[in-house]
């Protein structure tokens, strides 16, 4: 029995002059909550459209539950739920009418599959006579998710479901996804928010149509090859440049209200940072070693990729 739910094999896709995806490969297990993390333009939407049979790859192939996205697209369309990045429900229909309509095109009813969506739909049911266009961002997402779930899909494709949604609704949304996962649904989700990566079983970090890393969030953090120091001083502005002068510096970048400083010297002593900064006239210097995050890994990978591209050219 094939345990893979979704497989991508060397998939490439270009739009006229732009390469949206370049030879990406990944296999996703049944029941996995898999995240595609990357900024706008990384190719996330193209990937989701290929998997949901809306686009054909230029080369390579993709399968969903063993069905090829090009030849077996009809079978795939019966078993997947798809939530596009843009809110794609009928704004002039009410919450209930939208759900009813999507149930009807999959030849089912709200009553029949209510148990599937009840957790989510409960939140918006008090507003079921309100037009979808008049819902808040968080409620729209819940309705869209309900509509994508009402036909009991085996695989769920959620393209940036939390973009433009407030922090509380985002957390709620991820809790819902976790509950759905328990029911055995494979969930693929894309997001530009790095902090959401930790909530996935595995993630692929994406940049300019490439997968930079595919791993569990923990492994990505564990495998981080060097120490990271969070640095603060009274002259944050000069900090970025002044830190660059330390030998063997890999990267320096702002991270929230501190600056992350990466050094690839094996036995690097953080007193060096104090010394150099004092020399350059900084005061109120604070240095802590910090745990790497997905974002740090992303930055490092991006730098390597840029470097690689520069060498190639």
């Amino acid at each position: 029995m094939n345990q893979k739910s979704v497989v991508l094999e060397n998939v490439s896709k270009s739009y006229e002059s732009v390469k949206a995806l370049t030879e990406v490969s990944v296999s996703i297990e049944k029941g996995e909550l898999f995240g595609f993390i990357g900024p706008d333009g990384a190719g996330k939407t193209t990937l989701f459209r290929i998997l949901s049979t809306l686009l054909n790859p230029d080369s390579g192939f993709a399968t969903v539950e063993g069905f090829n996205t090009i030849t077996d697209y009809k079978s795939i369309r019966k078993i997947v739920g798809y939530m596009p990045g843009k809110f794609s429900l009928y704004q002039d229909l009410t919450v209930e009418e939208n759900l009813k309509f999507f149930a009807s095109i999959y030849k089912t009813t709200i009553e029949e599959n209510y148990h599937l969506v009840s957790d989510i739909y409960r939140h918006i049911e008090p507003f079921k006579h309100r037009k979808a266009g008049k819902l808040s961002g968080g409620m729209k997402q819940k309705l869209a998710l309900s509509c994508a779930l009402i036909h009991k899909p085996e695989v769920l494709f959620l393209d940036e479901p939390t973009t433009g949604v407030d922090a509380v609704s985002r957390m709620e949304f991820w809790e819902m996804l976790k509950k759905l996962q328990v029911q055995g649904i494979t969930i693929l989700v894309s997001t530009p928010y790095m902090d959401e990566a930790a909530l996935c079983d595995r993630v692929a970090l994406m940049q300019k149509g490439h997968f930079m890393t595919i791993n569990t969030p923990q492994a990505i953090i564990d495998e981080f090859p060097m120490k990271i120091f969070g640095v603060k001083s009274n002259r944050m502005f000069d900090l970025l440049i002044d830190l660059q002068s330390i030998p063997s510096t890999e990267d320096v970048y702002r991270f929230g209200d501190v600056v992350h400083f990466l050094n690839n010297e094996t036995g690097f002593d953080m007193n060096v940072i104090y010394r150099v900064l004092k020399q350059k006239g900084h005061a109120e210097i604070v240095v802590h070693q910090v745990m790497p995050t997905i974002e740090d890994s992303f930055m490092l990978n991006m730098k390597k990729a840029d470097h690689f591209n520069a060498v190639m050219q």
Partner: peptide
């Protein structure tokens, strides 16, 4: 234009 066609296409219709 509203993107609902995308959802309709990814249905068995």
């Amino acid at each position: 234009e509203l993107g609902t066609m995308e959802v309709l296409l990814v249905s068995p219709l």
